[in-house]
């Protein structure tokens, strides 16, 4: 077991990773018309062909996996912090940690599998 502050530092670090990667992600996916307007986007980001094309690039695969891991850690640790502030019994706290840890790892494995499988397509 690490000290609580260590988990918190990792939480902040994950937050910084997300900030960079999710900013790129959000700009490409949701500000697509803005990118078209300034002349560097194609505008059909949600078409299956363009999704497929992005998934085949190593940059997107790697950044998807890093974003997935960082966001899961940051989000679930944040959720745990909020839940722990509800004055729960020690046993329930341990159970919450276990559920979030196992659930988070499960989703991470699934997401990583998707990213790798999409690269192969």
């Amino acid at each position: 077991m690490l000290k609580e502050s260590t988990y918190w530092y990792l939480f902040l670090l994950a937050g910084l990773f997300i900030l960079v990667l999710l900013s790129i992600h959000m700009t490409i996916m949701h500000l697509d018309q803005l990118l078209v307007a300034i002349g560097i986007g194609s505008g059909d980001v949600l078409k299956f062909q363009s999704v497929l094309a992005r998934g085949r690039q190593s940059f997107f695969m790697v950044s998807y996996i890093i974003l997935l891991g960082a966001a899961l850690y940051h989000g679930l640790y944040g959720l745990r912090t909020i839940l722990f502030e509800l004055n729960l019994k020690k046993g329930l706290q341990t159970a919450i940690t276990a559920v979030l840890l196992i659930g988070g790892l499960g989703i991470f494995v699934y997401g990583t599998y998707v990213a790798i499988a999409a690269k192969m397509m």
């Binding site: 989000g75 679930l76 959720l79 999409a118």
Partner: peptide, 15 residues
Amino acid sequence: LAYFLLHIFVTGSRI
């Protein structure tokens, strides 16, 4: 967080 968890599974359908 709620959106993100949903998002993983929705976009996972692409494979």
